[in-house]
Every structure is written in C-alpha cells, then in structure tokens.
Design a protein around this nucleic acid. Structure first.
Length: 238
DNA sequence: GCGACAG
DNA sequence: ATCTTGTCGC
C-alpha cells in the first residue's frame, strides 16, 4: 500500500488491477497443509447476501446497498446450531469474477468479530484455492482469520473435471493442467455437483472429508446451507 | 478478437 | 447475488 495508485486506498476498496496484484502476493501465504488447532469442536458456516439500495439505483450487482454476512456456528459432530450472527455493512465493491473476496470479506469479518464461540474450522460459500490466482474468498478469509477454511461453491470458476458419478458421495478431481485444486462432489443423487476446495491451513483431502462429513439431507453441507438461509432472510437483525 | 466468468 | 408462483417428482 505505498505506490501512488494504492496509497490512499483501503485494502477493500482497491481498483481491480491492484486487487489482482494483492491476490498474487497473498496467495503465497496460503498454507495448503493441515494445521488445525487441536480437535474441532465448532464449525462455522459463512455466506453473504445483498440488500439493494433504495432510490434510483436498485441494482444489487453494483455498489451502494447493504452487504449482509451471516455466520452460523455448529457443534461437531452433532451439527446443531449453537450460535448465529448477521452483520450488515455498506457494499463497497461490485461483483467482478475473480475478485469476490473484496466484495464479501469486509462484512464477513464484521460478523466474526461478534462471534462468542472459538471455531476450529470455517466453511465458506464460494471457492478456496480453486481460483485463477489461487485466492478465492475462502482462502482470503482464512488468511484474515488465521483459521482453517474450505470453500464450497455451486458453480465452477476455473479448472476442469470429468463426469461425476451419480451416487451421493461420489467425486472427481478438479484440476488446472496437472495442479489439483479441489474436487467436484455429488452431494446428493440427481442434483448438480458442488465444488469443494481448501482455503487456508487445510489439505485437499481434508477439505473433501469435512465437506462430506457435514452433509445432511440437502445439496449443500449444513454449515453453508444454514448460513445461506440466514443470509437471505427478509428480517435480518442479528 | 472471442468466450468464460464463484456470488 | 436478486427478482418470483406454480409445478413436477421422489
């Protein structure tokens, strides 16, 4: 943050080219091996929702309006909700493929700041290292929280993969050339597969195991599914 | 230049 | 992401 073009900007209000440069630097700090802090007792699920601005510009995809971060804490292995928080922050940046974390992380951090439980693992709605510069929202948030994270996305951003068997629990690797980025998982029979990739302090194998271990009777793993539901509720207070 | 493109 | 009712299917 010292060059003429970035000096006056905050980490989250970067111009696309500066955000991309920052991602390249931060990607080198992401730990791809397991480094859990003891036994996992609580798992957090994170998702972001948006409230359009009133008045003239009602477009949710641009600026203005409110970014709503929902964090749900589940105990392990019961997977029961023990805490939930919703934080509302003004939207600063529009959605740009590849720069999602700059739009969503500020609100997510605000929500985590209010959390009472000490979570050992964080599951984020979006990709981890399965990103063009290997710094998807799950990896970026993991660095900020200094916690193990994994990303669970509903669509592919980058990488290629083969067909995924129809049975629940089946998966196939997601890779870019020869580099493994994560897996494509059939979380439910007869439903489009989800994309699982590690964020920070987690291996690909562990990210896969945790995603599968957190599956309930729905397409999305419980942490992310519940956060999703909370983030998109009309009445969002806390 | 053309297509792809998390939420 | 968000705007939205009914409807097909297990």
């Amino acid at each position: 943050m010292s060059t003429p073009t970035t000096r006056h900007l905050h980490d989250w209000d970067l111009a696309p080219r500066d955000a991309i440069a920052l991602q390249r630097r931060l990607a080198g700090q992401v730990e791809r091996q397991d480094r859990l802090a003891g036994e996992v007792k609580y798992i957090a699920g994170v998702d972001i929702g948006f409230e359009p601005s009133l008045g003239t510009d009602r477009e949710v995809g641009k600026r203005d309006g409110i970014t709503r971060a929902a964090v749900v804490v589940l105990n392990w292995p019961e997977l029961n909700v023990v805490e939930h928080v919703v934080a509302r922050e003004p939207t600063r940046m529009p959605y740009i493929p590849g720069l999602l974390s700059f739009r969503e992380t500020p609100a997510a951090l605000a929500a985590f700041a209010q959390l009472k439980h000490k979570v050992g693992l964080v599951m984020v709605d979006g990709h981890g290292i399965a990103h063009p510069r290997r710094l998807g929202v799950a990896a970026h948030l993991g660095l900020w929280l200094d916690l193990p994270t994994l990303g669970v996305a509903k669509k592919r951003l980058t990488g290629q993969h083969g067909e995924v068997p129809e049975e629940r629990g089946a998966w196939t690797p997601l890779k870019h050339d020869c580099e493994m980025l994560g897996i494509v998982l059939r979380s439910r029979a007869g439903v489009k597969p989800i994309f699982v990739s590690p964020g920070h302090r987690l291996s690909i194998d562990s990210a896969r195991d945790w995603a599968i271990a957190c599956l309930g009777r729905y397409k999305l793993p419980e942490p992310t599914r519940l956060a999703d539901r909370l983030a998109s509720r009309r009445d969002a207070s806390s």
